[in-house]
Amino acid sequence: MPTKPSGAADRSSLFGPLRRVISRSPVGRGWRRSKAIELWSRSLGFAALGFLTLVPLLIIVSSADPEHGRGFAQWLGEGLGVSRASRRQVEQLFTPPGQALRTTTAFGIAALAVFGLTFGAAVQTGYEKVWGLPPARWWARWRHVVWLGVLTGYLYLSATTTLLRQPLAGGAVASLSAVLFLWWSQRLLLGGRVRWRALLPGAVATVIGLLGLRVFSRLAFSPLIASNTVTYGPVGTVLVIQSWLVGVGVVVFGGALVGRLLYEELPRVAQALKRRGGPQS
């Protein structure tokens, strides 16, 4: 009967307990849950539907107020957090703000509404998978309509509010509004099946993840836009934007998953600390 080499047996005996500890830890449970909800596949779907929904929606919304609006290209460049040179490459992809509304057709708006409702359904399904909930009934589709309408208003305010362009005050207001929107979005799309206090950590974790993605974009996507534009032309910039949307999808669903883990683990940690800090006999 074949036996394991002594070196492999030693490594197994050394790393076996470590693997078990990691597997039982919140990190291990989070990793297993991320595979169970198919985080990467859902993020790819989020990016595809987001490109069909968010890009046209943001173009139209930012064009609704040409006097105060920044235009989608400028809005996207600031959202990516890339350098000025890379922003100019992004701006070359899109029409000026005033032209977008003039060229928008009724068919385009109808297609945008269909993709928008599908996008809302995809986000809802991702949240349901994170919390282990069954799919909502078909008559709950009205939640997608409400969510898409509030999302449109939120994006309009983000694109036209001059306060958000201030470095410090604007960043604080934008972060707080994002937390409130994501907090409410989870509650609405989940149909009130999860408590408000359980959803708050996920909203905060998602905003923190988006801020981290902005820093990563500054370091990684800025040079990528420059190099891809030289190699592939405007298509290279589109590929970088699509990659960024995949990252946004990972943060949206991953942030909700981290929020659930925090909500479940913090009481356990508090009880463990309370037992350790109790009176000694």
Rank of each mutant, 00 (worst) to 15 (best):
A85R: 13
G28T: 08
G108D: 11
P17G: 09
G69H: 06
R19H: 10
F94C: 07
G69Y: 03
A100S: 05
A47V: 07
S23V: 00
R24N: 03
Q89I: 05
T103R: 13
G30N: 06
G108H: 08
F46P: 07
R42K: 08
T53N: 11
F107D: 12
R102I: 01
R32T: 09
I60K: 04
R84A: 14
W40M: 12
R29C: 04
E91D: 14
P97R: 02
S62D: 14
P17D: 10
G28D: 09
E78G: 05
G81A: 11
L44C: 07
G50K: 06
S62A: 15
I22V: 15
R42N: 13
G16I: 03
S63D: 04
A48T: 10
R19G: 12
G81Y: 11
T105H: 08
I37A: 08
P56W: 09
R19S: 11
P96G: 04
R32C: 02
E38N: 13
G77S: 10
A106H: 08
A73I: 02
L101P: 00
S43P: 06
L49T: 05
I60P: 01
A36H: 10
G69C: 07
S25W: 10
R20F: 04
G79D: 11
R20W: 05
L101N: 00
L52Y: 05
F15V: 05
I22D: 01
L44E: 08
P56Y: 08
A100F: 00
S86L: 01
P97N: 09
P56L: 11
Q74P: 00
S63N: 07
A48C: 06
P96I: 02
L18W: 11
R33E: 15
T95V: 07
W31Q: 09
T95K: 12
W40C: 04
Q89R: 14
R29K: 13
W75F: 15
K35L: 15
R32I: 02
V27W: 13
L44K: 08
T53W: 12
R33C: 03
W40I: 13
I60V: 15
T105L: 02
R19I: 00
V90D: 03
P26I: 10
L52C: 12
T104Y: 04
P26K: 09
S86T: 03
R20I: 00
L101R: 12
H68R: 15
W31H: 01
I59C: 11
A47Q: 07
T95H: 12
G71M: 04
A73L: 02
V61F: 06
G69F: 02
R33H: 14
L54R: 00
G50M: 08
S23G: 13
T104W: 14
H68A: 13
S41P: 00
I60Q: 03
F15A: 01
A36K: 09
F94R: 06
S62M: 03
L101S: 09
S86C: 02
P26H: 12
R29V: 09
V61S: 11
L39H: 06
V55G: 03
S34C: 12
A100L: 01
G77A: 10
R29S: 11
P17K: 10
T103D: 14
E78L: 02
P96A: 14
L58N: 14
W40N: 08
F15L: 15
A106W: 13
E67Q: 13
G30R: 08
S41L: 11
G77R: 02
A85M: 01
F107V: 09
T105E: 05
T53Q: 09
R84F: 04
L101G: 00
P96E: 03
L39Y: 02
S43A: 15
